[in-house]
Design a binder for these strands. Structure first.
Length: 271
DNA sequence: CCCCATGTTCGACA
DNA sequence: GTGTCGAACATGGG
């Protein structure tokens, strides 16, 4: 489920418990979500007694800090959720990690297990965290950076590039379609075509959609307004929400992901 | 039974 | 080496 705004929502769910000590750690050590995390069972026990003192999000990545014990990195994959449950909540089959804190439990739940948990027993921020690409709303996400990327990957459809986390951290399938719809760019347009004509529009709209998504979804998982593509893109028979358009929307598989667009508003490419 | 799912990674190929 | 693309991962819901 989660793209950057949903990830930020989940960050806030756990952040409500900042300042509290960990009193217990439960996990399913055999779960696939621990792939790449060395010795999870042993090292995660360091969290016992440590104060939960940091809750960070960057794109789709989450990082939670525990004073003097280390850092817990979480990626939610396709179906991951962070929950705050009762202090004695029973561990479900898909609750791969549970932190007991005074009066509550923080739960990482992920049925499909495309998500991932890792633990770094260090004081400094982990390298994989500090080396992430610039946030979409930060000064580092520049037109120059975007244009260079569009040219380097010039043969790839722009829809596929918007899902590339090395330059668009936090963008996922629905945000990519929303950005292209708003900027009137056809999802199959080869990137090199945009660098010349629509780079500025794409750059600006990317940041607008990011701001809007965070404003609407992050505080309490609010519903998207009906004038976004979001509410019309999932089901068959949807119509373009643009006031003077209202054309039937198209949907097709593009590079393995369902893509929705308005054939009347988004015409920058054939097909 | 079928098909679909807001993600990432790996290997094949040109 | 580089860029591109399909398949695989695992589970649940309609």
């Amino acid at each position: 489920m989660p793209e950057l705004a949903e990830v930020e929502y989940y960050r806030r769910v756990w952040a409500e418990s900042l300042g509290l000590p960990v009193t217990g750690v439960l996990l399913h050590p055999e779960a696939r979500v621990f792939r790449g995390c060395l010795q999870p069972l042993d090292t995660l026990n360091r969290l016992n007694g440590a104060t939960f003192n940091q809750a960070l999000a960057h794109g789709k990545q989450l990082l939670f800090g525990f004073e003097a014990a280390g850092w817990l990195g979480i990626h939610l994959g396709m179906s991951g959720q962070l929950r705050c449950e009762a202090k004695d909540s029973v561990q479900d089959r898909h609750d791969h990690l549970i932190l007991r804190l005074p009066g509550r439990s923080l739960v990482f739940h992920d049925p499909r297990m495309f998500g991932r948990v890792r633990f770094d027993a260090a004081t400094d921020l982990p390298d994989w965290w500090t080396q992430q690409p610039p946030d979409l709303l930060s000064p580092g996400f520049t037109r120059e950076r975007l244009d260079a990327f569009l040219l380097k990957r010039g043969g790839t459809p722009i829809k596929a590039l918007l899902l590339d986390q090395s330059i668009f951290p936090g963008i996922g399938n629905w945000m990519a379609d929303e950005i292209l719809w708003r900027s009137r760019i056809h999802p199959a347009t080869p990137a090199r075509q945009l660098a010349a004509s629509a780079g500025e529009r794409l750059w600006r709209t990317t940041r607008e959609v990011t701001e809007d998504a965070l404003r609407v979804i992050a505080p309490d998982w609010g519903d998207a307004p009906d004038d976004w593509l979001f509410n019309h893109r999932w089901k068959d028979g949807g119509f373009c929400p643009r006031p003077r358009c209202r054309s039937p929307l198209s949907r097709a598989d593009l590079r393995g992901r369902t893509t929705c667009w308005c054939p009347k508003c988004q015409k920058s490419a054939t097909s």
